[in-house]
Simulated scan of single mutants.
Amino acid sequence: MSEHHPELVADIDAFLNESGMSEITFGRKAMSDPHFVRDIRGRRRVWPTTEEKVRAFMAEYAASASPALCTTCDHRLDDTAIRACSIRECPHAQREAA
């Protein structure tokens, strides 16, 4: 077991950048430890089972957080801009009452 895990830290940093999740939230959700990211950056030991748990959390989060896209206009379904979509066939766009 290595004292420092630069690959894991780099992967967590990439995950945080992509997801917009804070370090503290990540630590709480992945490990029930709000200081987990700070501590591993400070060279906290990480057991192989802990690394597996962290990587599994990131993979599950990424899979569940993939935005759903409209098949007509490619807007994210959770994006308010879809309501103003100018594509006539878009079933999600809100239209003015005639």
Rank of each mutant, 00 (worst) to 15 (best):
S2F: 13
E3S: 12
P6H: 10
E7I: 07
E7K: 12
E7Q: 14
I12V: 04
A14D: 08
N17Y: 12
S19H: 10
G20Q: 03
S22K: 04
S22C: 05
E23N: 08
E23M: 02
I24C: 05
I24D: 09
M31T: 06
S32P: 03
S32G: 09
R38T: 04
D39T: 04
D39E: 14
R41L: 00
R41Y: 02
G42D: 11
R43D: 12
R45Q: 14
T49L: 14
T50M: 14
E51H: 07
V54I: 13
F57C: 05
M58W: 03
M58A: 05
A59C: 00
E60S: 08
A63E: 12
A63M: 10
A63K: 15
S64V: 00
S64C: 05
S66M: 10
A68G: 03
A68P: 04
A68M: 10
T71D: 12
D74G: 01
D74Q: 01
R76S: 07
D78R: 01
D78I: 06
D79I: 00
D79P: 02
I82S: 03
R83G: 03
S86P: 11
I87M: 13
I87Y: 09
R88P: 10
R88Q: 09
R88S: 07
A93V: 08
A93T: 13
A97E: 13
A98Y: 06
